[in-house]
Design a protein around this nucleic acid. Structure first.
Lengths: 162, 162
DNA sequence: CGTTGCTTTGAGAGCTCTCAAAAGGCGTGG
DNA sequence: CCACGCCTTTTGAGAGCTCTCAAAGCAACG
């Protein structure tokens, strides 16, 4: 991806949504897509993509398999988060992940809405909002704008994420 | 796998466990294993395995990639369960999955303990037990023994699983 | 400056968890 | 064959965390 952000998600019949992954600029993806089961990919905001075709130029074992295995590892990591961590732990892990993927700086973008975050972390939008407010109150982060995060203290964040 | 059952799981520092997959007889697996992050595979009971080596005989794009992608699809399916479904929905989906993988008969084995089920579904052992009891009380299933399930009424089970 | 949609905050309910004890299964040994 | 002990499972009671419903606050936009 060149710029923007993409979400990969599934829906239940009643509309409940689970986002299984976000993809940021510089990342290659597409394996998550499975035609058979209400899987979707959507751009979150203005986004530029490059598509690749599987041709003789693509070495499956060298290029595609590592990508698929990486996606599998991330999905399993996320299973641990959804199955066994509290709201604070989920948010902390999420912020650390985003920070790392954007270069590890103390300030970074939050390209997705609160609802997207909630649907990624298996929470409600209200719980996401309340938890971010608690982080802010504790001085762990600050939010210069709705879509921008500054990490004030990495230690507590890393401890919470386990 | 020839017989038995295997669980794939991850641990948090404080001992919380998340099982990401069970593997039953007849299934090929191994891609879940990732050396870098406290990943484990364990036999649940007496189990027979066959190991394959990646040699010239194995066509990566024909054999390995579909397997990895299948694992990814299952993991993402499971993310939806852990992120967005209630205890009853999780148990119902779990029982239906087990039934299907054992031939779709109305009677099938439960090769894993209640604790394993809980750690797979992101619940506690007590909640798993209570939910199974409720299914039994409603006449949806019966449990001739601890490790054996009979589905009495498929309809309610499928509705609960969505 | 009003409208519209997203986010935050508040109050209370509900589902699952925690802690605890009873019940049930299963193998060992008498 | 029965008694005992250990481990798993079930059941009970209460607490806690997250959810639901509701309203207020904010920001972007015409």
């Amino acid at each position: 991806m060149a710029f923007g952000a993409v979400r990969i998600f599934r829906l239940l019949a009643d509309g409940r949504r689970q986002i299984s992954a976000f993809h940021l600029p510089g990342e290659v993806f597409g394996f998550e897509l499975n035609a058979t089961h209400r899987f979707f990919a959507e751009a979150i905001c203005a986004t530029g993509l490059r598509a690749f075709r599987v041709t003789a130029d693509v070495d499956v074992s060298r290029d595609l398999l590592p990508l698929a295995l990486g996606g599998l590892a991330k999905a399993q990591e996320h299973l641990l988060v959804l199955g066994r961590q509290s709201a604070s732990e989920r948010l902390a892990a999420f912020l650390l992940d985003l920070a790392e993927r954007q270069g590890g700086l103390e300030q970074f973008d939050l390209p997705m809405s609160r609802l997207d975050i909630a649907d990624y972390l298996g929470l409600t939008i209200e719980t996401v909002s309340r938890t971010l407010t608690r982080f802010k109150t504790k001085g762990v982060i600050s939010l210069p704008s709705l879509r921008r995060v500054v990490v004030r203290r990495w230690g507590p964040l890393q401890e919470m994420a386990e």
